[in-house]
């Protein structure tokens, strides 16, 4: 570490700490994975689609499963820091709050990305999926969509941790705001899978959403962290 800690070096250290904690406990990943698996299995009881139909609905099912699983992980993001007054210590330290936010967001991004890597094969097997469009587009959509879910989710998790019944609070405030992002990720995925429409508008919209909400979150995180 350099003599004067920069935003990035603090972010990296905080992230390394979170990843090490997660590696040892595997709390978030395990609960997320099992939850997502349950959602996939229950969905497949509900539908018995043909290959053609499954292309059309898989985008929606996949992202709804990821969304629910993400909420499970997000709820644990900040509770860990409440336990030993870590958050208060962070508030007192001169470290920039944005570093804390970024490290948490990147951490959640990695968890959700791992979840997706493990879930996509499941979807392919259970729903006999074969994409008509190019796979690299799906990859881009997945990256943009995951960031969109996680950047807002991490911010709202920090909001809802200050409320009564916080586990219920997070989806209540996260879902309405995320509706355009959800619409974009589901429609982009469906367009690529079926090859019917061009996904480029949705990819651009996701990119805009990511940029706008990353900026707003970074801007507003400091007052939220310091709210008394």
């Amino acid at each position: 570490m350099s003599a004067t800690p920069t935003l990035w070096s603090i972010t990296r250290r905080s992230l390394a700490k979170d990843l090490r904690l997660e590696w040892r406990s595997k709390d978030a990943i395990n609960s997320m994975l099992f939850f997502a698996l349950l959602v996939v299995v229950i969905f497949s009881f509900g539908f018995d689609p043909t290959a053609e139909e499954s292309r059309r609905i898989a985008g929606g099912l996949l992202w709804v499963a990821v969304l629910f699983a993400t909420v499970v992980a997000l709820n644990q993001t900040w509770t860990r820091e409440l336990r030993n007054q870590v958050l208060d210590a962070y508030r007192l330290s001169p470290a920039p709050p944005q570093a804390l936010f970024l490290s948490k967001t990147i951490g959640n991004f990695l968890f959700v990305a791992i979840l997706e890597v493990l879930m996509v094969p499941l979807f392919v097997v259970f729903y006999n999926l074969r994409s008509v469009g190019p796979v690299w587009q799906l990859l881009v959509v997945a990256l943009l969509a995951t960031w969109a879910l996680v950047v807002n989710g991490t911010f709202f998790a920090a909001l809802s941790i200050r409320t009564r019944s916080r586990e219920i609070m997070l989806p209540l405030i996260l879902f309405p705001i995320s509706i355009p992002a959800l619409l974009a990720m589901v429609d982009a995925t469906t367009s690529i899978l079926t090859g019917d429409n061009s996904p480029y508008f949705w990819m651009r919209l996701l990119a805009v959403y990511d940029v706008v909400f990353t900026a707003v979150s970074l801007l507003l995180f400091e007052p939220v962290l310091n709210a008394e």
Partner: peptide, 10 residues
């Protein structure tokens, strides 16, 4: 503060 942040997000 929390409400104001959400108001701006919205």
């Amino acid at each position: 503060v929390l409400a104001a942040a959400l108001g701006i997000f919205g």
